[in-house]
Design a protein around this nucleic acid. Structure first.
Lengths: 123, 123
DNA sequence: CCGCATCCTTTAGGATACTG
DNA sequence: CAGTATCCTAAAGGATGCGG
């Protein structure tokens, strides 16, 4: 009902790490939570054009289970839930740094344009 | 017929990088080719318990297309094909280094045993 | 030995409607 | 607002058999 077992056994550390970031939006979630530090569901969604509610919820729950994301629920009306990175989430993000740099290099090589996300840099 | 389009557009470098390593065995292929430097198909397969011929071929082809893997075909009988990393493959592997370290840490935290790969350390 | 073609199952991802 | 439930399609992955 919930999700496939996941979580190993792994052959090497790369395996173990890729497991928790595999998922169409997980890298981006990590990045956005790094940028805004604390973020509500709706705002996070706004920052990620194209993601569906289902996928965002699902990915956030998995990342919470994996100890990457902290979910703070406020018993208010209307409800408020704030997401942030845990310590493990932060270290993972740092570990992803060099990969991100490599990815940017790759985009330059391939001439692949990144999609503009509310931050046009050429007016 | 070949494969889905892939290759962007990406939201950030992480996206672009994760795209080329997403695939059940790609991280491991990268690692094994890093270890043995040059590797034949059969040997590569032996080093990766559980992978099917189809998946190994498919992943290797995609990684070749992505400029990560070099495929050297020798016109001999019986045929011989040697795989190795390209420069981009090597830099990607280096970029994956911190992620691998993080993954090992994660396995320690979770108590997840890595599977033994032809190297039993406890008799 | 290396790999392609085919068929099949499983999983990921998306659209939509509904709820506390 | 922040989800859950259901249904559906597409893609990944796996088993097996054939071919150069």
């Amino acid at each position: 009902m919930a999700k496939a077992p996941r979580r190993g056994p792994y052959i090497c550390g790369i395996d173990a790490a890729l497991d928790v970031v595999s998922g169409k939006w997980k890298g981006l979630i990590l990045w956005e939570l790094h940028v805004c530090r604390v973020c509500r569901f709706a705002e996070l969604r706004r920052r990620m054009p194209g993601v569906s509610e289902k996928m965002l919820t699902q990915h956030l729950r998995e990342m919470e289970e994996d100890g990457l994301v902290h979910r703070e629920v406020y018993a208010e009306v209307p409800p408020r839930v704030e997401y942030s990175l845990t310590e493990h989430g932060r270290t993972l993000n740092e570990a992803l740094g060099p990969l991100g740099v490599w990815g940017v290099e790759r985009m330059r090589r391939e001439g692949t344009e990144a999609v503009e996300v509310a931050e046009p840099s050429h007016g």
